[in-house]
């Protein structure tokens, strides 16, 4: 699959514009608590988001007018593997509150190792177990972090 390089640039600039404009809009609703504008909590966010919006508009114009049409490849395989990995990671984090943390982490690691192509069962299980053990020793035992 191929996507136009120009389109990609334009969409990034458009994303910047949306971000800048949103921040500018949000900054206007910051309560000044009766302070002068120059010392108010609004002044810095407002000033910066204004500049950001202007930069984004400028970039967008330049992208539309000046960028030459070019092609940049997008590998569908890459997107697939990324989404697959993200699914495993998000499933892990969503389950984090409901399943015992150490057990879940252990299975997450096995799944992730396997997904990325690790096949030696000894290394997969051993690696996962030693990481869980390290996590337990350092974070929970050593640093008294109480996991969910």
């Amino acid at each position: 699959m191929f996507v136009l390089g120009k389109l990609r640039k334009i969409s990034l600039s458009a994303l910047f514009l949306v971000t800048g404009a949103f921040l500018l809009y949000s900054s206007l609703s910051i309560d000044m608590k009766g302070a002068d504008f120059v010392v108010s909590p609004r002044v810095v966010p407002f000033g910066l988001s204004l500049i950001m919006t202007m930069i984004a508009v400028w970039s967008l114009v330049l992208d539309i007018v000046k960028t030459r049409v070019s092609q940049s490849p997008i590998d569908i395989q890459v997107i697939k593997s990324l989404l697959g990995f993200l699914t495993i990671v998000f499933a892990y984090v969503f389950l984090i509150r409901s399943v015992n943390f150490h057990v879940l982490t252990f299975f997450f690691l096995i799944a992730a190792f396997y997904y990325l192509g690790a096949r030696s069962p000894v290394w997969v299980v051993g690696g996962a177990a030693s990481l869980v053990a390290a996590e337990f020793l350092i974070f929970q035992y050593g640093f008294k972090v109480s996991f969910p």
Partner: peptide, 19 residues
């Protein structure tokens, strides 16, 4: 190997952010 390193780094990110 990346197959081991990347999940380990991900775990580190998660635990670190939580801790």
């Amino acid at each position: 190997p990346k197959a081991y390193l990347l999940p380990a780094v991900t775990l580190l990110t998660i635990i670190g952010a939580y801790a």
